[in-house]
Design a protein around this nucleic acid. Structure first.
Length: 413
RNA sequence: GUGGCUAUGGUGUAAUGGCAGCACGGGAGACUGUGGCUCUCCUAGAGCGGGUUCAAAUCCCGUUAGCCACCCCA
């Protein structure tokens, strides 16, 4: 009864600094690249995802947390792209501008079996650039991902890249794949036999040895791409090379969500065990038009924040605060100290006070633990003289300071 | 969702059916008003529910949670 929901976690003060660091770093980089924050609700209509992620995807079939409330069929959002597209259209941003670049940071929900790097409530940092077909935007998105990882201090990641082609190419390739696999269907693993019907592309990244062998025997190439898609992809790879971003081309790279077209990429890290994708993204040139008609190509990506934190090797600690720790001895002193505390804080000086009523020694220990730069001690002696004792915790020196001069004194430290 | 492994003070761990021990942490104290180092003492434990047994942390069943692989995906 008094426990967390499975697959969720509390982020305690000792960890929240790392989160803040990642979030603040992300905001800085996004604004450097001209992306603006968009915040969409966590709660969305179930139909929004049912119609966009693909009816047969795992997420739609069994991973959404559903909320039924009177006649509404709602879900906790399982990903961020579709809500951003919804907000883009619902607020007529497609009519006021020809393109928009957005980023978002927030929780997503999927009812998967929890594992390291795989939670039921997890957090995405993502970006969406809506309204342009330019391959230079693909380059921008991938270099933005790369830049973010550098900002976060993640090392030893690998960017893998592929093009799925336009929807025609995808359909043609799916058909070709099915016909070439048909005769060997029985040799595929049971999962792949299901994938054959449901999402044939997924067979390409099966981990089963027998399936891998069959896949490699097909000797797949990018030949199924139409000339436009091929030249788009060539522009992307050439551009990435020109700005020094190394990617590995991986013809077997596919994505689990139906809306992806053309450029897709994934960023992998070996520290994450089985959940090795730090982030992924790609084009979704037909998703917007599916809701609103017209032709609005787009591209986006998202990182998993929990996975980013696993991949960073340093554990962040907030740098030592310049804190004044106020120690009263006795009740009269306490009354004096709350006034002092108030005026310290009013002067933008970080200050905390010991309310424990324990011995001075214990209070000093607390001051030490709070990482205080200075202690202010007020007891009977100080009250009688109208002074406070100011102690430098680093060197241990202390002096008496007149109460009315304390603020100025501390400001000048 | 499938298969498997694990579960001991706040944390990390030890004890192979027979007195639950250690380290860290937390508290008090070592010149009655001074922290960090050291020392002393104290503190606090078997996830939950059943079962087997004279006796269970230990064996069995269930459950919950975490982890591993698959699956999925960020």
């Amino acid at each position: 009864m008094f426990t967390r929901v499975r697959g969720t976690q509390d982020i305690l003060p000792q960890d929240s600094f790392s989160w803040q660091e990642v979030e603040e770093g992300a905001r800085r980089i996004f604004s450097l690249y001209g992306y603006q924050e968009i915040r969409t609700p966590i709660l969305e209509k179930a139909s929004l995802f049912n119609h966009s992620l693909g009816e047969t995807t795992e997420i739609v079939q069994k991973q959404m947390f559903e909320i039924k409330h009177s006649k509404d069929h709602l879900v906790l959002r399982p990903e961020g792209t579709v809500p951003v597209v919804r907000a883009f259209l619902e607020n007529n941003l497609n009519k006021t501008k020809d393109a928009g670049k957005f980023y978002y940071i927030g929780p997503m929900f999927r009812a998967e079996r929890p594992q390291k790097g795989r939670l039921r409530q997890f957090h995405h940092i993502g970006a969406e650039a809506i309204g342009s077909i330019s391959p230079y935007l693909d380059i921008e998105i991938i270099s933005l991902s790369d830049r973010l990882l550098k900002e976060f201090g993640v090392k030893d990641y690998e960017i893998v890249l592929n093009s799925l082609g336009c929807s025609k190419d995808k359909a043609g390739f799916a058909e070709e794949l099915r016909s070439r696999l048909k005769g060997r269907l029985a040799k595929l693993c049971p999962d792949c036999q299901k994938r054959y019907k449901r999402n044939v592309f997924r067979i390409l990244d099966c981990k089963n040895a027998a399936c891998k062998k069959i896949i490699s025997s097909l000797s797949l190439t990018c030949d199924y791409l139409c000339s436009e898609c091929r030249s788009h992809f060539e522009s992307v790879t050439r551009g990435l090379e020109s700005i020094g971003i190394s990617c590995q081309l991986l013809p077997s790279l596919v994505r689990g969500l139906d809306y992806y077209t053309r450029t897709v990429f994934e960023i992998r890290h070996n520290r994450l065990g089985s959940q090795d994708a730090l982030g992924a993204g790609g084009r979704y040139d037909n998703l917007v038009s599916r809701f609103a008609g017209g032709d609005t190509p787009a591209i986006g990506f998202a990182f998993g924040v929990e996975r980013l934190l696993l991949a960073r090797d340093h554990h962040c600690v907030p740098c030592a605060r310049c804190l004044i720790y106020v120690i009263p001895l006795g009740q009269k002193a306490e009354e004096k100290c709350i006034q002092l505390l108030h005026s310290l804080r009013s002067n933008q000086i970080a200050a905390d006070m010991d309310y424990s009523g324990r011995s001075l020694k214990a209070k000093m220990r607390q001051a030490n633990e709070a990482n205080a730069g200075f202690c202010v001690i007020i007891g009977e002696n100080e009250l009688a003289k109208g002074v406070v004792t100011l102690k430098n915790m680093a060197c241990g020196e202390q002096e008496e300071v007149k109460q009315e001069e304390l603020i100025e004194k501390i400001k000048n430290l």
